[in-house]
Amino acid sequence: MNQSRREFLKTGFKTILATGFSIGVFETLRPEVLAALKKEEGLRWAFVVDTTKCIGCGMCVKACKLENEIPYDVNVTRTWVERYVMTKDGRIYADSPKGARDGFIKNDPMGVTVKKEDIDKGFFVPKLCNQCENPPCVQVCPVGATYQTADGIVLVDRTWCIGCGYCIMACPYGVRFFHPVYRVAEKCNFCYHRIKKDMKPACVDACSFGARLIGNIRDPWDSVSRIIKTERTAVLKEEFGTKPHVFYLGLDSIVR
């Protein structure tokens, strides 16, 4: 093979460039680098509810009401547990008496005693504020009394809220309610006063079954974000585009 000096140098230079470029591409496509490019730093709270572990004791509801000064005997609550029982004839029984403040201690879904042999499946689903990335409840507030913090928690300013109730109607998950004492809109805030002091929300602490978990979705090594990324999770009412940040394990399609 006959090759001039110039020809040889040209080809060599091209080869070095091509190799360097392809290595560079693979380097930038590494998941860590891509994650860093997305500029999602800091803290973003997310919640995981494992419905397969929930047994419907309602300790979370009791702890939440006492922790957050929600009048105990009024039928309002920041978090609640729903019971779903599906029978062989296709009926669905769904109830949550007093938001499951006293748990489920009788086999009486919607006041009906369901025989064991008639049941196809039954389970409990804890519900709480989804701390949506696009919270519709915040959009509708006419006075700027409800807002989202940088770490993703939607809060209500009790001194600024005029109690018009728009946000209560806007929430697709029915999470908001009217506080009977302060006479303002009220909602779950993942126990903001606790999570900001490195504690867990009262419901997470009260759960003896590990059905409730909280963590930072932006930290790839956080146990909660690992569950969300590696396991089969679902969110409620995804079609609304609210981007909820409460992720459910073992969520059945009959759950609304």
């Binding site: 957050n68 809060l155 903001y192």
Partner: peptide, 16 residues
């Protein structure tokens, strides 16, 4: 919103 409200929520009393 009113920024000071964040601090008001952080100062909420812990019971459990």
């Amino acid at each position: 919103y009113r920024k000071g409200n964040e601090e008001e929520w952080k100062a909420f009393k812990i019971k459990h």
